[in-house]
Design a protein around this nucleic acid. Structure first.
Lengths: 230, 230
DNA sequence: CACTTGCTTAACGCAGTGCTAAGGCTCGGT
DNA sequence: ACCGAGCCTTAGCACTGCGTTAAGCAAGTG
């Protein structure tokens, strides 16, 4: 992801609001919120979020009405949230242009998945572009990597490692950074693990540390993935 | 379509039926009609209309049932009509493949607009087109899936699962996402359920996890549906 | 030549997965 | 209203292979 999704939440219930803000923030979203329809409309226009989550049961205005107003002035995708017993408002909301809906109560995992699905759908279809570094191609979407057209059979970590390096061609990356970004460990464990995976990656790329082609060690600093020459 | 739309109306109430026939004819449609489900099914198959308007409150058969039967044998678009107090059947009908709905009482202008909208939509080839991934074909409208031309007998979940994957050929989809998007549960279920359904799907596709052809597991990430090779 | 840094191989524990079987549920049919 | 069939979920077990750690070796550095 080049940037974190900006989510704007329109929800009157303070408990749900704070819980969602906390959960979504942890899941990597930037969350803003409004407690009612009128503020919600203004904040949405002012804040330019990537997506809006709209509770249909607002006190000051019917949620579907607000949805229509939003639709009239901005193309921002909207997910509506509703209580289980309000089937009809879901249908009306989808009719009014909602992109998706969730039924309360829902888990943060659910809403997170819906947000990402809607963003994937509405945003440019090519957020995860295939990467190419010399004769190495890496496609994060299908998780397929090839070298000289041949398929590379990589383990999950190996793939992530290669993808991370391929996203920064020619740039030297430290092992600590790799541990933090690829391994996602709060505090870095032993660098030796990275060494092992780099070794395996080298073997599968068909090259060695002494005679590198793409994966180059910069002693005392880190490693980099370069184009190499044919 | 340069010709007048042929509309087939399945409605038991004589008053509504004759009123609609008159109104729609004036608006430039060619209208035929049937008073009950069984006749409606036969007339639809025999008359080859461009669109069907189906009253859900038929005397001899549940409307949603008839809709499923229609869906199984013809790709004709269907608009369902229902009384105001039957929200749930609207949801079930849309789920079963209805293209749109109207709530009684409705004006002839309303139904006319819906008819034209649905015809416009179903005329454009991009929406709801049958999906093809390698030798697997999935048609969400008729809910029919085939492999190598042979019919696949899938349960509802199995079909939804296959359809979701087929809509994203080659893309790795996590089990979490599948749970959220295919299962649509407000709460978080267990990933193992997805595993089981994937297993059943594999069996019906005639492949195994160890020797996959289309349905490929990417360990630690999810699954993807690929073209495979003949 | 001693010391540091990086590379590679081997071994072990375990997380993720595939599949079967067993209840429990819904829904259509009688 | 009852009954049976099909479907979904849960539980459990075997298995694969991934990731980590450890240890020794090679290469670079002062």
């Amino acid at each position: 992801m080049s940037h974190m999704p900006r989510v704007h939440l329109i929800e009157d219930d303070l408990g749900i609001r704070s819980a969602l803000i906390r959960a979504l923030t942890e899941l990597g979203h930037v969350v803003t919120s409004s407690p009612d329809a009128m503020t919600g409309l203004q904040d949405t226009l002012g804040g330019d979020p990537n997506i809006v989550i709209l509770d249909l049961g607002l006190p000051d205005l019917d949620g579907v009405e607000l949805l229509r107003m939003l639709r009239a002035v901005t193309p921002v995708p909207v997910i509506v949230a509703t209580a289980r017993d309000e089937d009809s408002s879901v249908v009306r909301a989808l009719d009014a242009g909602a992109d998706d809906y969730v039924i309360k109560p829902f888990t943060s995992a659910t809403i997170d998945a819906r947000i990402r699905a809607v963003l994937r759908r509405s945003a440019s279809p090519e957020t995860n572009v295939a990467l190419q570094v010399g004769s190495i191609a890496v496609d994060p979407r299908s998780r397929v990597a090839t070298i000289d057209g041949r398929l590379l059979e990589l383990s999950p970590r190996e793939f992530d490692l290669l993808a991370y390096l391929a996203a920064r061609p020619g740039e030297v990356v430290s092992k600590r950074e790799l541990l933090a970004e690829v391994w996602r460990l709060p505090y870095g464990g032993a660098d030796k693990t990275v060494d092992v995976h780099l070794s395996w990656l080298r073997k599968k790329l068909g090259e060695s540390a002494t005679d590198p082609r793409h994966l180059i060690t910069v002693r005392g600093v880190g490693v980099k993935l370069v184009e190499g020459q044919e």
